[in-house]
Design a binder for these strands. Structure first.
Lengths: 248, 248
DNA sequence: CGGCTTTTTGCGGGTTTCTGCAATATTAAT
DNA sequence: ATTAATATTGCAGAAACCCGCAAAAAGCCG
């Protein structure tokens, strides 16, 4: 293995995962730690990556820190962390799009082994960073607004899936009106996704609570998990305490 | 063993394995290390390969990863601008993935009204910025390496399309061996895409010229346009001047 | 053909690069 | 504060490299 080949390999890993661990590289490339460290050092000198204790990070990842533009990021990370507990090895999961879901994907455990169906290209790209995760992107018309695929073709493919868990972002949720939305297409998609999954989890920042929109997606009774950044005992959630709905 | 013969031998090895070791060549060709080194040095001067400590690497291999920074980008923008002239309102276009294609999409005229089918989520996201462009993302298994969808499902959907123009990035192109690739899946995809389109354009930075890889995608005769950053009259392109292939 | 130049090739010896080891210091985490 | 993981530093052997030289091979010309 030539030095340059190692460097290329490292770059590939970094572009893929946004980070590398020294110890992983030692195993993968079968050389000593010193060699890896020297490699990383050199590449850092060429400012191809950002070296840190234990490995290295993607340069772009650090400089493109306008991730902060994601609204209510803290809350979403909190939600994401709770949600990961629902996800076990071997599961088949169906997901929509949205920043909340993307945040969730970033929080998944490194070695998760699962199958994800998604209608969101961005979620697919993010999921692809996990080695043991199989990603199936459901194709169809591509929506400019919501950055997901939609239309009859998508619906028909979704309806053929049999997933363990369905992860949905939220437009609005209300104690009596349940899950609602404004866009008819998205409404259809969400309905289909829920009926294709045994269980469904609704990821919802607290601001979306107690809002009701025009189109009904599902009644509270048909949701399995409601996940917010609040403590499950928070008083804002008392109205949602019904049988069959687990609040996390 | 004449020098020229050695050089040819080295090129063959490099096209096959993407790399050679000085020590291997010494054994295989039965000459001294110095001779090999001199050979590699000369070939590197002619920029036929990339010389490193211990051997040499394929030019294409090397440039795939990290050279996407500045120099290649200029070339890609140049290619993109030429390619936009092929694209007219009302066309149905099929595209693959890759940075060259992304660059192209960024250069499209603001008010283009066309239909794009693509297997690349990133291309889809980029295309979605154009108001009058309809984007259909073809779904299927999602490849972690190449960031495109692939597999039987994709192939079967591609084969149902009837496009006006097919835009392909290039792994390697060669005067006699035509368009080639290393990955079997991608090979299949490109073949299908070409047969689903009336015309096909190959976007190719000049570094990828005169390189031949293992799997054949198409003969030069079956390509409609070859687009590089060079002037069409550049001598590097003379070997590609055949009937039916328009060089831009 | 015989001398002349040029090219090619191998060799010796000195230099640089690469890589792993060991001892020591630093950092992260509990 | 203690411990385990990770970094740093210097070193040494091996491998690869570079440079100049000279012999052999090939080309050139009268």
């Amino acid at each position: 293995m030539l030095k340059k080949e190692r460097h290329d390999f490292v770059m590939k890993q970094i572009n893929l995962h946004n980070r590398v661990l020294t110890s992983d590289l030692v195993q993968l490339l079968n050389v000593s730690e010193d060699t890896i460290r020297r490699d990383l050092q050199e590449m850092a000198d060429d400012s191809l990556l950002y070296k840190v204790h234990g490995g290295a990070l993607s340069k772009s990842y650090h400089s493109t820190f306008d991730d902060s533009s994601v609204y209510a990021k803290e809350a979403k990370i909190n939600i994401a962390k709770k949600t990961t507990k629902l996800i076990k090895d071997g599961m088949v999961i169906l997901t929509g799009g949205g920043t909340t879901i993307i945040e969730l994907v970033k929080q998944l455990p490194e070695n998760l082994q699962a199958t994800f169906f998604t209608i969101s290209p961005l979620v697919a790209v993010e999921l692809a960073k996990y080695r043991k995760v199989e990603v199936i992107l459901i194709g169809g018309l591509f929506s400019k607004n919501s950055q997901i695929t939609y239309g009859g073709h998508v619906i028909s493919q979704l309806s053929e899936i049999n997933a363990d868990l369905c992860l949905l972002g939220t437009s609005a949720i209300h104690p009596t009106n349940g899950l609602t939305d404004t866009d008819w297409e998205i409404n259809q998609l969400k309905k289909t996704m829920m009926s294709s999954s045994r269980k469904s989890a609704v990821l919802c920042i607290s601001e979306k609570l107690n809002i009701s929109l025009r189109l009904k997606v599902a009644a509270l009774e048909n949701i399995t998990y409601l996940i917010t950044e609040l403590d499950p005992s928070d008083e804002k959630l008392t109205n949602y305490q019904i049988k069959n709905l687990k609040i996390l």
